[in-house]
């Protein structure tokens, strides 16, 4: 509803539109990638343009966890706990080679990729990724969420049709 004009939509679509354009990221920054993350949120690259305006440090208030940096075995339980504290629905962006796969630290104290412990939606490669890389990653996440909701809606519709059909047949 803009001025005199009307827009009709479903509640799900409105919700998805809102969700897609106002992520509240939790920066789980540990190392070098966190410095690049700071560059991305500061004025030059300005991630707020894509709706990543509200950076929250409390897991209870955020829906995207951006893991930026090496996760060691000592840090792993902390990361898991913070992920568990985030309310659903939630997504994870793994920023940089270390978070994706351990990077070039094939070592006794480094986790070989955070997907050993938590599910990851988007992997952003690079050591560290360029700011453009991270921005591409978060746009991919948007697309992924759109795709997933569309799929879910289709599935639900099919299921409903299926249920109706079986009722009719009986």
């Amino acid at each position: 509803m803009i001025g005199e004009s009307w827009v009709t939509t479903t509640f799900e679509k409105l919700e998805e539109w809102g969700r897609n354009n106002s992520f509240w990221p939790l920066p789980f920054g540990t190392a070098c990638c966190a410095i690049e993350f700071m560059s991305v949120v500061s004025s030059h690259y300005d991630m707020a343009r894509f709706g990543y305006e509200v950076v929250r440090f409390s897991p209870r208030q955020s829906d995207v966890m951006i893991v930026a940096g090496t996760i060691t075995d000592k840090m792993a339980p902390v990361m898991k706990k913070i992920y568990d504290q985030m309310p659903d629905p939630k997504w994870v962006v793994s920023m940089g080679a270390c978070a994706c796969s351990g990077g070039f630290y094939r070592a006794y104290h480094v986790m070989q990729g955070i997907d050993e412990l938590i599910p990851v939606d988007v992997y952003v490669p690079g050591c560290p990724p360029s700011p453009e890389g991270l921005m591409y990653g978060i746009l991919q996440l948007k697309e992924k969420i759109e795709r997933d909701t569309k799929k879910r809606r289709k599935r639900e519709k099919a299921k409903r049709a299926d249920d109706d059909g079986s009722v009719a047949a009986a």
């Binding site: 060691t72 840090m75 630290y105 006794y108 480094v110």
Partner: peptide, 11 residues
């Protein structure tokens, strides 16, 4: 400390 011990010296 030690939450970012990445084993530089062993590497």
């Amino acid at each position: 400390i030690g939450y970012l011990h990445r084993c530089f010296e062993k590497m």
